[in-house]
């Protein structure tokens, strides 16, 4: 009986959490301009989303979002992995300082990160556009990469690296053949996390994107919503984003479960 109520409560909450998304997904398969009117099943919104034309700027925004996410995630992963190796080898006070600094971007609310970077760029006289958005995204993504890689370094047997050096490997070879394979799972998690954070971001982007007409998906949706009428094509788009995130998360979870099993097997 207790179990029944517990399950019922969980499903009720889940229903509340998913009801809005479900409604968007359902009404992405009808043509009606206004959400809530069902005018029969149709995939027209999906085809018109990808055929461009009127919604060319939307396609453009999607493209920008992906370019920014990939470039930021790549830079953040490289910067963060190198930094993680460095921080892992630091001692005492220096380590503490680095960890504290690394925590600041994660604790700061988005709006503060956005405004502070905005002030930085305007006081340095940098024109805002692609580069500033990417720098801003790297700023809030890298700490997560560091946090993903450091546990891998802690689990690693430090003697392996030394052994490679003793056996005549150059530091470069030891890095490539020993260190990087060991921290690779952490780097991949960090990359995926950075990628999703970057795609999701709105508050930091809007302050660093400038007025040059550059748009990402978030700023496009924002501008669109403020105009009042939401482009119907956003319904299929939201549905696609939702399904993509769902698949990505399932992959991450399977991956982490597999590594956990491996750990337990050891």
């Amino acid at each position: 009986m207790k179990k029944f109520f517990a399950q019922a409560y969980l499903w009720l909450l889940l229903a509340m959490l998913y009801a809005p998304i479900l409604i968007i997904a359902i009404f992405s398969f009808t043509e009606a301009k206004v959400l809530g009117n069902w005018t029969g099943f149709s995939t027209k919104l999906y085809t018109s989303l990808f055929s461009g034309g009127v919604h060319h700027s939307l396609l453009h925004a999607i493209e920008n979002t992906f370019i920014i996410a990939i470039v930021s995630a790549v830079i953040a992963t490289m910067l963060g992995s190198v930094a993680a190796i460095g921080i892992f080898n630091l001692r005492n006070r220096k380590k503490m300082i680095m960890n504290t600094l690394n925590n600041i971007p994660m604790l700061n609310p988005d709006i503060i990160t956005g405004i502070s970077l905005f002030l930085l760029f305007v006081s340095l006289g940098i024109t805002q556009g692609y580069a500033t958005v990417i720098l801003a995204h790297v700023t809030f993504c890298t700490p997560y990469v560091v946090l993903c890689v450091i546990p891998r370094l802690q689990q690693m047997n430090p003697n392996i690296y030394e052994a490679a050096l003793d056996l005549g490997a150059t530091p470069w070879q030891a890095l490539r053949k020993v260190l990087i394979p060991e921290i690779k799972p952490g780097m991949i998690s960090g990359f995926i996390l950075s990628f999703t954070l970057s795609i999701d971001d709105f508050a930091v982007t809007i302050f660093t994107i400038g007025t040059g007409g550059l748009e990402t998906l978030s700023t496009y949706i924002y501008a669109d919503a403020r105009k009042g009428g939401l482009t119907p094509e956003l319904r299929p788009l939201s549905t696609i984003i939702f399904v993509t995130v769902l698949v990505l998360l399932i992959i991450i979870n399977i991956r982490s479960q597999r590594t956990q099993k491996l750990k337990e097997a050891k």
């Binding site: 909450l13 889940l14 959490l17 998913y18 009801a19 809005p20 998304i21 409604i23 968007i24 009404f27 959400l35 809530g36 999703t196 795609i199 999701d200 709105f202 998906l217 978030s218 949706i221 924002y222 919503a225 939401l230 956003l234 939201s238 984003i241 939702f242 995130v245 769902l246 990505l248 998360l249 399932i250 979870n253």
Partner: peptide, 21 residues
Amino acid sequence: VLFILPMWINILVRTLATVAL
């Protein structure tokens, strides 16, 4: 996982979904 999943969806999309609801 179902409870955590919505954390990874764009906050504007989620908000618009609420407006839609």
